[in-house]
Design a protein around this nucleic acid. Structure first.
Lengths: 351, 351
DNA sequence: TTGTACGCGTTATCAA
DNA sequence: TTGATAACGCGTACAA
C-alpha cells in the first residue's frame, strides 16, 4: 500500500503551543536529556559531533530561542541597563540616548527607557521599577534630584552613572561636559568680535549647569576687564525653553545688550523668534548665541551659532563607563570639552 | 554585668552582601518560612496581622524589592514590551516613542528601546534579542522590511503592532495615519490659494508612505481638473531628508512649480534652505508644504505650513492596542486622520 | 559521551 | 495560621 508521506519527513515536530519552546521540548523530540541539549547548543565539546548537529537542527526547526529570563535568574545578571531621562521630548536627551543605545547594543546590553518628567516622585518610582527588573546598572541624565533618592541608591548596589547631573554625590559616577569652559568659549568669541554689552539668559530648572555657564560667562568678562552688569543677567523661570527665550528679549530692549548668550539652543531660538516679531534683525542688531547644538539649530534662520556639547559622545562614554564598572574596573569621572560652532546668528556689533 | 548594647536594638539585621535581598533572607531574619514572607508581602489574609506587619517592617528595613525576573519565570509574563525603531535621531520617531512610553509606564509595562538603523539584518537581530528577553509584545515603527522576518514572527507568537509600516502583513496589527487623506488636505489647500503648478517632492526609502502621499496628491489634482505633470513629480534618493529637500529645488527652478508639497518636514526644510541660498523667497516666490509637523517646523523661518500626523497619538494608541491584545481582546487596525497646520511657508502664488 | 540532581527567586498547591 | 514542596527554564557539579 502506498502512502503519501514524502520521504523527507524524518520526524514529526510538535509545535503550535502558545508558550515558547524550551530545551526540554527539544530534549523530548531529540530523545535526550535537557542537559545534553543545553550543552549541544553551547557547543560543549563533551557532546558528540553528530548529536550536537542533530540537536541544533531540531532547535532551529522548532524556532528555539533561549530565555534570557531563566538565564538571568541563574547568572544574576540581566545584561540590561536602565536609562532614566526627564523626557524624550528634549532634543538634548535624544542624542544622549542615541549614544547610550548604540554602545549598549554593541555590547549585547538592552536598554530600558524610563522617563521621570523631572518629577522627583516619578524619578523614585522609575528607579524602583528598574531595580525590580534587576537592571545591571542605571544611567541618569540631567537629574535635578539625586540627593532625594540617594539613600535608596545606597541599598541598590549597582553602578550608577550620572550624565550632566545637577547634584553631587559620593558613590555616584559622573560624566559631563565642561560648562564653564564652554561658556568661556562663547563669551570670548563675542568679545573677540567687539561686543561689550553681552547678556546672559539663564534658567532656573537646571541650577547647577546654569550656575556653571554663568560662571564661565563672568570669568570671560572679567578676564577682558569688564565688570559684569547685573542688568544683563536674567535667570528666567518659564514653562518651556522657547517661552524663556521670548521673555529674555528685555535684555536687548531694556538693558541694551548687543549680544545675548543663552542657556541652551531652544532658549536662543525663542529669543530669535521674539526678536523677529519685534522687528529686530539677528545678527545685525542683536547677536544670539546658544548652547547644546541640537539638530534644529542648523535649520533655524539665521542658523544658530552655538556651543556644541558632545551629546552623542556623552552618551557613548556614559555607557562605556558603565561597562567598565560592570567589569569591576575602577573609573574616574569624565568631563568632556565643548566646542564652538560658528553659524550665522552672531556678528560684530552694529555701529 | 552591664553590656553596652542599647535597648532599641531588637534584632541584628545582616546586610551588605552584593546580591539583592530575597524573601529567604527575610524569612531567616523573621524566623518564618519564605512562603509566609511571600504571603505577608502580598497581603494574603491567611497570615496574621502581626506577622504581616512584622515581616513588612523587616522587608522595608532590608530594602527588599521583589525580583521581576523570578516572577516572570513563573508567570510567563515579563510586563515588558520591545519598541523597534529605525533611529531615535528621527524627530518623527521621538514623538511616537514618547506616546508609547507614557501609556506603557502608566500600565506598569517597561519598554526596551531597540534601533535597527533601517537595516534588515539589524532589524532581525533586535527582534531576536527582544524575543530572547521574552517581551510580551513588540511595537515596530516605520519598518521597511516586515516581509523579511515575517516567517520568524510567525513562530514568535506574541502581539506585534506596526506603526506606519511599509509592508502589509496578515497576522500583524497596524496603526497608521491616513497618508492619502493628509496629502489631499495639503494639495487642496494649495489649490484653494490659487496654485496650479504644484510639485511633489517624494522619497525612495519609505515606498509605501510615499506612494500613498503621491496618490493623495494626484487625486486632489485630478479632482480639480488638473492633469498631473510628471515633470512636477520627483522621488529623490538621498542620504538625508535635508539633502533630498535641497536636491528637489529643480521642481521650482526647472519645472516651474509655484508650490511644492514635500514628503516630510525635514525635506521641506531642506528645500527652504536651498531656496534661501538661491535667493528665492518663501512663500512669496515659492510655497513650501511639509508633512509630519515635527517640533522644528515651528522654529524655522518662515514657520513651516505642514500636515500634522498625530505622532504622539500614534504612539499612545499603538500601546493601547498592544495592551488590548495582551488582554486577549480582538482589535481592528486603526487609521488616524491628519490635520492641516497653517503657518507661514505657504501663500497665494505670486502674480 | 550522556544523565541526574540541584539551585537561582518567586508563587501555588497541598498538607498540617 | 503556617510550612514543606514543586514548578517556571536554564546551567553546572557530580555520577554513570
Amino acid at each position: 500500500m502506498h502512502t503519501c508521506a514524502p520521504m523527507w519527513v524524518v520526524a514529526v515536530i510538535p509545535m503550535g503551543g502558545r508558550m515558547p519552546v524550551t530545551i526540554k521540548d527539544i530534549a523530548r523530540v531529540a530523545g535526550v536529556s535537557h542537559t545534553t541539549v543545553s550543552r549541544a547548543l553551547k557547543g560543549n565539546p563533551a557532546i558528540s559531533i553528530e548529536t550536537t548537529d542533530r540537536i541544533r537542527k531540531i532547535a532551529q526547526q522548532m524556532g528555539y530561542t533561549p530565555s534570557a529570563v531563566a538565564q538571568s535568574l541563574l547568572s544574576q545578571r540581566t545584561q540590561t541597563i536602565g536609562m532614566v531621562i526627564t523626557t524624550i521630548a528634549d532634543p538634548f536627551v535624544v542624542r544622549v540616548v542615541e549614544g547610550v543605545e548604540g554602545v549598549a547594543q554593541a555590547a549585547d546590553y538592552s536598554v530600558f527607557l524610563a522617563t521621570s518628567h523631572n518629577n522627583p516622585n516619578q524619578e523614585n518610582a522609575v528607579v524602583e521599577t528598574l531595580h525590580r527588573r534587576r537592571v545591571d546598572a542605571i544611567i541618569v541624565t540631567s537629574s535635578r534630584v539625586g540627593s532625594l533618592y540617594s539613600s535608596r541608591l545606597e541599598q541598590i548596589k549597582i553602578p550608577i552613572v550620572l550624565i550632566n547631573n545637577q547634584e553631587e554625590g559620593e558613590y555616584l559616577h559622573s560624566i559631563r561636559s565642561n560648562d564653564i569652559q564652554g561658556a568661556r568659549l562663547a563669551v570670548e568669541y563675542l568679545l573677540g568680535l567687539g561686543h561689550r554689552r553681552i547678556g546672559y539668559l539663564g534658567c532656573t530648572n537646571r541650577p547647577r549647569s546654569n550656575q556653571r555657564r554663568l560662571s564661565g560667562y563672568q570669568a570671560a568678562l572679567q578676564q577682558a576687564g569688564i565688570q559684569p552688569d547685573p542688568n544683563l543677567i536674567a535667570n528666567v523661570a518659564a514653562d518651556t525653553d522657547i517661552e524663556r527665550g521670548k521673555a529674555g528679549f528685555h535684555l536687548y530692549a531694556q538693558a541694551g545688550a548687543t549680544a545675548v548668550f543663552c542657556f541652551n539652543d531652544l532658549t536662543a531660538i525663542g529669543l530669535m523668534m521674539e526678536a523677529r516679531r519685534q522687528g529686530v534683525a539677528v545678527p545685525a542688531q542683536l547677536s544670539v548665541m546658544g548652547f547644546d547644538n541640537i539638530e534644529a539649530a542648523m535649520y533655524v534662520t539665521p542658523p544658530l551659532t552655538t556651543v556644541a556639547q558632545p551629546l552623542l559622545e556623552l552618551g557613548r562614554q556614559a555607557m562605556q563607563m558603565t561597562l567598565a564598572l560592570l567589569d569591576g574596573k575602577l573609573v574616574h569621572d569624565i568631563r568632556l570639552p565643548c566646542t564652538l560652532v560658528e553659524r550665522e546668528s552672531v556678528a560684530a556689533p552694529g555701529r
